[in-house]
Design a protein around this nucleic acid. Sequence first.
DNA 1: TCCTGTCCTGCGGGAACCCGCAGATTTTGC
DNA 2: GCAAAATCTGCGGGTTCCCGCAGGACAGGA
Lengths: 238, 238
Amino acid sequence: MKVLIVEDDALHRAFLAEAVRAALPECGQVIEAENGLKGEAQARIAQTEHIVMDLQMNERNGIEAARTIWRERPDTKILFWSNYSDEAYVRGVARIVPEGATYGYVLKSASEERLKLALRSVFVESQCVIDREVRGVQQKSLGTSLGLSDVEYEILVDVALGLTDKAIAQRKHLSLRSVQNRLQQLYEKLDVYETPGQVNVGWFNLRTRAVSVALSRKVLNASAIERAERDLRQSAGL
Amino acid sequence: MKVLIVEDDALHRAFLAEAVRAALPECGQVIEAENGLKGEAQARIAQTEHIVMDLQMNERNGIEAARTIWRERPDTKILFWSNYSDEAYVRGVARIVPEGATYGYVLKSASEERLKLALRSVFVESQCVIDREVRGVQQKSLGTSLGLSDVEYEILVDVALGLTDKAIAQRKHLSLRSVQNRLQQLYEKLDVYETPGQVNVGWFNLRTRAVSVALSRKVLNASAIERAERDLRQSAGL
DNA sequence: TCCTGTCCTGCGGGAACCCGCAGATTTTGC
DNA sequence: GCAAAATCTGCGGGTTCCCGCAGGACAGGA
């Protein structure tokens, strides 16, 4: 049994390696990679089926790396080990996990015990393990009250990219008015109309404000926008 | 000599504590805090003049904590130890360091030697130590080509908050047209007019696009926006 | 079958945005 | 002290955005 560690922080990498050896005595080899790009390469070379990996890395972040790895070997077991439970990350992971694949999501703030347990559960028992807190974010993102539907989320991303209503309509094969309807739903769900002061009319540009509160609430983050930007360039460039 | 460590990651905190003891044998006491809020409290209680601290923490980030600490004791020596050299962080730090204060900024990716050297330089020699890479970002942010002036940066932040032209004009005591002029400079400097595809007209909402590229280029980041949001609420609420 | 809820679509208008033009004011350099 | 450069400001227009109103398509339930 081989395990690949993909993590850019040296301290965390060492800690992970030690935890893996302790939790999985049957593990014969621990390979390390310091960013997503090298992680993909190592996974290809070493033919490893067990990966523990950080989200948020420089060269290529965990979500993108996982996507290409899973595209090549959908049965790979991946344990995500991240600092944050941002909705953007949780949603990003859920979006790419293939049918029937086993994976885990534990926070770095969790205890070492939890980490080791998750390592065994995911790699040996093929069980999906998602931290309670992360699951909370999942739930919330599905709840009708504060949560955005998938369509609304996609619109939000397009807006955050800086696209025009017209451009979005074209990309999504919708009429201009439909895009604007979805935007209105978005504005309501994000509480864009709430105002810090007392005078409430004309203080906010709703479109930009929506991006702002989405960032504050971690519904969006910079890496999600960068990913969308690359997708946009690709689809526009062909 | 007492040293206060403010860092939310347990592994990094332990590593820092060890580095401090190794680099500063004359250091009698090492105090630790796990977020900015507790860091402020500890600095007040322990009357410590030497702080090493992470930016990007949960409860209160390093920039805000440093601001209040320096407000109470401007002669405090602070060494920032951060993962990133985002322009937003560099600018945020530069904005709050008081006249004549000594501080340092080293990246977590730097070697342990560099860290220890910086500890001695800042705390013992009262010298400012800024990592080469960070200084590069500083330079770039001052260069006329890609860099934004302070006024332009403030406008950018207001736009990222989702404010209207009119609202910005009011806040900044400018006419509507002046705000729009500044915005145009901003659009040019951020290359907002560049287009991924071939059709270039009407694809982008310049205002939102500006925020998008500012985020991608790390000129802005989420914590800078959150800080500005709090400032806004405060100034609007009084 | 009809009713109800949800989604897409067009129309229209008021507001906000983007920006060229041009005069006034301030700052800068020599 | 004066000219050049940079900023601030108003005007006017074309465009986009925000959204109420209303009609059409389609699914599920009584």
